[in-house]
Design a binder for these strands. Structure first.
Length: 427
DNA sequence: AGTCCACAGGAAGGGCAGGCGA
DNA sequence: TCGCCTGCCCTTCCTGTGGACT
């Protein structure tokens, strides 16, 4: 869109088939009378809410991280030995979602990289990213790739991948800091053997040194680790507390100065975004999302200032987008299970596994879908719970057995949206 | 106190697809 | 082409659970 040079006049030129900017995007068919022309013109003529939209993004790393000075310093001190060629301790960072763990780890290692020059290499992997580093093989393949060795995404024996990673790491004398984000996902799927090997790799390396920063939001995760892995991985431990509403306000103000001016929000908007995010365990990510989406909604309405009503609409939109995205992304079997739960919960607020299996089997028969076993359905129900689409709890009904009580975790409007979406899939 | 129910959930393994090297 | 390796999805088998019932 940048190629349009922010000038509505360009649209006229494009519409007439003349491209005033070499290599500019051609708005084919968007002639002055088309509705699309009006949309584009309004967009280009409107004063934007965010002049630097990137600064509102979650992946943006600012130069200043409010209310995390202590953590930045602490991590800096732990990693500083790298500057004298020593191996820093492995660090384990806990904290709920949106408490700045990843941001601080990236910021500190980034600054360290600048000072250390070529002597330090920082590698970041996120184990929650599907098909990236969520299994032992994929983590190793990802590491090999980071060090310039391309390995196939499947097919090789694990020991061969280990050898490839090992050789790649030790090919040049260097200190390596490996940031393993959402490390609990990796361990859940692959076991802790991979961590055991990585934490002991230094014994075999001749020229390089590897330190690990493990990040998780699962506070009980470390207790489930093999004691050998636990002791070597958590040589240093850091806990990131949730932000409170006032701290979230500071974060939003800081980002707003980078992304736009203070005049782009009306009174109470920052406070509202912060308060809503504080309700969700002090999640700065949520606060930024709310502010960013509010700004986008304001821009779309042709307004240059975010108002409180935009925040309300943004909250609704974020929830709706999440539900739609999750519902669409599910495999057909999970969609059938979710549809069964929705149908049942229209009659009863809470339903049981047995009821769901019954409706699900009927749905499968109607649509020529091969029904899964109850065991598998039980796993898929647990997955839907994990996605936040439903809430479940296991109860005992005494003589009448044990079961899982399932409740939809969606508002009426969202349930209707999901129901309509799934209806289109099955009918 | 023992039995029973209706599951939950762990473990093991089958089948399939993708990819490699010989 | 074949044997081997991987991840992934799934089934089968099994044990565990906890409160009502006898």
């Amino acid at each position: 869109m940048a190629e349009l040079k922010g000038n509505a006049n360009n649209l006229n030129a494009h519409a007439s088939g003349i491209s005033p900017v070499p290599g500019a995007m051609t708005v084919m068919g968007a002639g002055p009378k088309t509705p699309l022309y009006k949309v584009f013109s309004q967009f280009l003529e409107a004063k934007p809410v965010f002049t630097n939209r990137d600064a509102m993004s979650i992946s943006f790393t600012p130069n200043n991280i409010p209310h995390r000075d202590r953590q930045v310093e602490e991590l800096g001190r732990v990693l500083a030995p790298v500057l004298k060629g020593g191996k820093p301790s492995n660090v384990f960072i806990y904290g709920k979602t949106g408490t700045g763990k990843t941001l601080v780890a990236k910021y500190v290692t980034g600054e360290l990289e600048k000072v250390a020059g070529g002597k330090l290499k920082v590698v970041y992997v996120n184990c929650k990213m599907k098909h990236t580093a969520d299994t032992e093989y994929r983590l190793l393949a990802q590491l090999a790739k980071e060090f310039g060795k391309n390995v196939p995404f499947t097919g090789l024996p694990t020991d061969m991948i280990y050898r490839a990673v090992f050789e790649a790491i030790d090919s040049v004398p260097q200190n390596i800091i490996l940031i393993v984000d959402e490390i609990d996902s990796l361990i859940q799927k692959a076991g802790d053997e991979v961590l055991y090997t990585l934490t002991r790799i230094n014994g075999d390396l001749k020229r390089s040194r590897l330190s690990i920063i493990g990040i998780t939001n699962d506070l009980g995760f470390i207790d489930r680790l093999d004691p050998r892995v636990r002791s070597s991985l958590s040589e240093e431990e850091m806990v990131f507390p949730p932000y409170n509403a006032v701290q979230l306000q500071d974060i939003l103000k800081e980002r707003l100065t980078l992304a736009a001016g203070k005049e782009s929000v009306s009174e109470g908007v920052i406070e509202k975004c912060a308060a809503l995010a504080a309700q969700e365990h002090g999640d700065a990510r949520r606060a930024l999302d709310l502010m960013r989406v509010s700004g986008e909604l304001a821009e779309r309405a042709g307004e240059s200032q975010i108002a409180l009503r935009h925040v309300d609409a943004a909250q609704e939109k974020i929830d709706q987008d999440r539900v739609i995205e999750i519902t669409k992304a599910q495999p057909k079997q999970s969609q059938a299970i979710l549809y069964s739960i929705i149908q049942l919960s229209e009659k009863d607020k809470s339903v049981e596994t047995g009821d769901v299996v019954g409706v699900y089997n009927r749905l499968c028969n109607e649509h020529g879908l091969k029904p899964l076993t109850q065991r598998r359905v039980s796993d898929l129900i647990a997955e839907l719970d994990m996605f936040g689409m439903i809430q479940t709890r296991v109860i005992s009904k005494g003589r009448y057995g044990r079961t899982r009580i399932i409740e939809l975790a969606l508002s009426d409007a969202l349930r209707e949206k999901a129901r309509q979406l799934l209806k289109d899939v099955f009918y």
